[in-house]
Design a protein around this nucleic acid. Structure first.
Lengths: 344, 344
DNA sequence: TCTAAGTTCGGAAACGCTTCCGAAAACCAA
DNA sequence: TTGGTTTTCGGAAGCGTTTCCGAACTTAGA
């Protein structure tokens, strides 16, 4: 077997075996115009037999694609991001593209990422997973010269796949209102590492608007703003319970927060949902396991859609389109009508 | 300014500006032998002024490293894997290496991965995250010709970073025994997608051995084997509760399973830990949020260690070494001594 | 001052691929 | 059959580096 010095099979080997020129072999493998079906078949067969894989470096250097897509993710260890990545990876992988992972955990990582642009010259497209891109960052990103889509966070700048967070919030709060609750608190989440997190504002606005519509004033004492995470939710609930008139229901910006809040309530001797109702957002697996009522969003599907959109953009077929996914209420056992004595 | 057609600044530009040859410029930038200090300084200055960045493709093609490391992961959307990846990504990223993600979710993906070897020619090293590599698969992997380490699963074949699962199991079961429990059940997990999951056997063996040592027979009715996951844990608990003599304590192979089991117990009107104790494994965030007693393993640190080991291997400095991390019991509120009436 | 050894640097050949351009071959209608 | 199209294919020029090899130049020892 005649291999190149590198020990790897090269296109030359494939071409020789198929009895065609290097140029033709390349065209056949890349499905370019100008190769007869028969020849293409022969080349593909030869490639198969020799277990040939293109060298992405050479391919790219010669003006082709890298065959790689970048995924920029704040926290790969959180369910939401992991699931979204899994969805994207699935369709990307099926399309034969590799996934390059970039984390932008804290503010430093983030600055570094946009400044150094480690993705430069390495990818054909980029998916920004679950965080907003600032104007200045967008300019840096443009330097990459590749297609970009946003997943899990609505963005002006790029095509996106996500859920309508205002709708999500409205569904959650309305559920509480429908049950008869009037003193409804909100535990509002912020990610200290990701200033300007886009889902925050709509989820909060939905709360205020829904209460307004119901003719209820959302007293300032009923909103707690905490960093993202379960423990913070637990702390927030403690604050809420220390109010003169504690809420009969709590709307949390995420399931983790909600579960933390429930832990505090239970430790305080309260029954959930008997004494206090709690609703979360996401339908994180933890929600099912802890009987938490929540608003489900199809995270995996969002990741898949984002990837599909990116593929379309890379292929340059039709104009890229954004997709907004529907959310739906999942009623479990953390919400119930308020106790009679608690109604006002 | 004279730039190459690509629009990017190339080494040629730098060389011209510094008034040296291409070869010298390359040597200066790569800190190779044979360049005078003065010349090197001139080249570096020119590079700086032109904001030059090497083309990774060209560099690699001409004989360098890919600057990429592969991560093979079964389920990126599960906390354990996500956290491990986050740890590995951290140290890899700091070392200037990019991370290429490969998922091998189900058996099909897996076969495909080892057959097609999509990682070929794309990486300098590989981390196998949390699953055992079969003999046949190992042979395929050798074809990659790169360094390999295993993270989160002890392996004969490769250097590894993980926890001793036998110890983990022993800690959990001993805790239950020390509390005075005698009818201790085990919910044993298997991953249907990953036959031969290596952590399973030690975790189960630890249970049997610990009971033996305590002079207790582990009746067959006290072990449930279920697929991985919270819902399965819930089902398993239902089975256990339907026994003539239900257990007073349950040892679950993971926190998700444990939480599912607790849900079932609570729905059945049992108090946890009053009527039945439950202990899990991992110290998944869900454990803290649901007051679950568990055995913690330093997942993130394991990922970091695995990456560090791989870096050493790639650099070829010293011989690679495996690391076993300690696990520790985290006592929360899901375990307590058995109710008096339940003691036998 | 002359030779031998050591330094510093430039020329040029890879690395493995894509693609432009032109030639050969195949096809069609007249 | 012939001339003109349309396909199909090979030659060859890059893409931006690294590195081997040898030339030129510097230094040191005699």
């Amino acid at each position: 077997m005649s291999h190149s010095p590198s020990g790897q099979t090269t296109l030359v080997d494939v071409a020789r075996r198929a009895g065609v020129s290097l140029a033709t072999a390349s065209r056949a493998i890349n499905d370019s115009y100008g190769v007869s079906t028969k020849t293409r078949g022969r080349v593909l067969a030869a490639a198969e037999e020799l277990a040939y894989v293109v060298s992405p470096e050479a391919s790219r250097l010669a003006g082709g694609r890298t065959g790689r897509v970048g995924l920029v993710v704040p926290h790969i260890d959180r369910w939401f991001f992991g699931t979204l990545v899994a969805g994207a990876e699935g369709v990307l992988g099926d399309a034969g593209l590799d996934v390059l992972l970039f984390r932008v955990g804290d503010a430093d990582d983030r600055r570094d990422f946009f400044h150094r642009l480690p993705a430069r010259r390495k990818i054909d497209g980029l998916i920004v997973v679950g965080f907003p891109v600032l104007e200045a960052e967008r300019e840096r990103l443009d330097l990459l010269g590749v297609s970009i889509v946003s997943a899990g966070g609505q963005q002006e700048a790029y095509p996106y796949a996500c859920v309508d967070d205002y709708e999500v919030g409205t569904i959650a709060v309305t559920h509480l209102l429908n049950l008869g609750h009037r003193r409804i608190a909100m535990i509002e989440a912020i990610d200290p590492d990701q200033p300007g997190w886009p889902t925050l504002a709509p989820r909060s606005a939905a709360y205020h608007d829904a209460l307004d519509r119901a003719g209820i004033r959302s007293g300032p004492g009923l909103v707690c703003t905490v960093p993202w995470g379960g423990e913070a939710g637990a702390d927030a609930m403690a604050q809420l319970l220390s109010r003169a008139e504690p809420p009969t229901a709590v709307y949390a910006h995420s399931d983790e927060i909600a579960v933390g809040a429930i832990r505090t309530a239970r430790r305080a001797g309260l029954d959930v949902p008997g004494d206090i109702s709690v609703v979360g957002i996401d339908d994180h697996p933890i929600a099912a396991l802890t009987d938490l009522t929540t608003v489900a969003q199809p995270v995996r599907a969002i990741g898949e859609r984002a990837a599909a959109t990116l593929l379309e953009m890379i292929d340059g077929q039709h104009l890229p389109s954004s997709t907004t996914f529907p959310a739906k209420l999942v009623v479990r056992r953390s919400t119930a009508p308020p106790a009679v004595g608690a109604r006002d």
